[in-house]
Simulated scan of single mutants.
Amino acid sequence: MWIKICGIRSMQDAEVVSQFQPAAIGLNFYQKSPRSVTRKLAGEILPLIPDSIERVGVFVDQFPEEIAEIANELSLTHVQLHGDYQPEKLNALANYSIIWVYRMGKEGIAPLLKQLDSLKQNQIPITACLIDARVPGLYGGSGQTVDWESLVREYDREKLPKLILAGGLVPENIAEAISVVHPWGVDVASGVEREDQKDAPLIEQFMKNARSDHRLG
């Protein structure tokens, strides 16, 4: 199970998270987010992250050229794109590993499948799709869960081979979420925080529950 701990915003967060060796950590470059980091701070945090842990940069409607510049400067493993990006305008990121984010609402994942077709037509390869709950005005970190059952009904593993589940995941529900959806990976931010900092006991329990034996029904 690929596990990403997102919203690392301090050197203390980096040290706490690194001891549990998740597959990836996320640094949020969206300045309106309470978990945002500057390029300077990100540059101070990343040396504390073991090389074995993937580094994901989280971006919201920032210019592709700026994203590429940050990805190069910080040697990011993946760029995670939230917002209203147009596939035909992403040429600057064609050679980067992209995690495409879809905020799922009542309309299900049909719009996501159209987006993926457009990305393919524009020769923009996608490494994985992250599905989060749609909450007006927020781009992740809302604490709201996706409608897991609805997602499963529409989930086509051939079209979404690497689905990352996000949204309202906590130690208490992660095992159930995985057993229902069977995602390739999971992403957590607020669910492992206490008093706005990453919390070691919560991370430990989250990862233990996420990596437990989830047998297919």
Rank of each mutant, 00 (worst) to 15 (best):
K4G: 03
K4P: 01
K4E: 10
G7E: 11
D13I: 01
V17Y: 13
Q19P: 04
P22T: 03
G26T: 05
L27R: 02
L27E: 08
F29E: 11
Y30W: 15
Y30P: 06
R35M: 08
V37T: 09
K40P: 03
K40H: 10
K40S: 14
L41F: 07
G43T: 12
D51Y: 12
R55D: 02
G57P: 12
D61S: 12
P64Y: 03
E66R: 09
V79A: 05
G83L: 02
L90F: 07
L90T: 05
L90S: 14
A92L: 06
L93H: 08
A94F: 02
I99A: 01
G105D: 15
G105H: 13
G108D: 00
I109C: 01
L112I: 04
K114P: 02
L116W: 00
D117G: 08
Q121R: 12
Q123N: 15
I124K: 12
I126E: 09
I126Y: 06
I131N: 06
I131A: 07
Y139D: 15
G140C: 02
S142E: 05
Q144T: 08
D147E: 14
E149T: 12
S150T: 11
V152F: 05
V152K: 08
E154I: 07
Y155H: 14
Y155I: 02
R157S: 13
E158C: 03
K159E: 07
L163E: 09
L163F: 08
L165V: 02
V170C: 10
P171K: 07
N173P: 05
N173Q: 10
I174A: 06
I174C: 09
P183E: 01
W184D: 13
D196C: 07
D196Y: 05
D199S: 15
Q205P: 05
Q205N: 11
R211P: 04
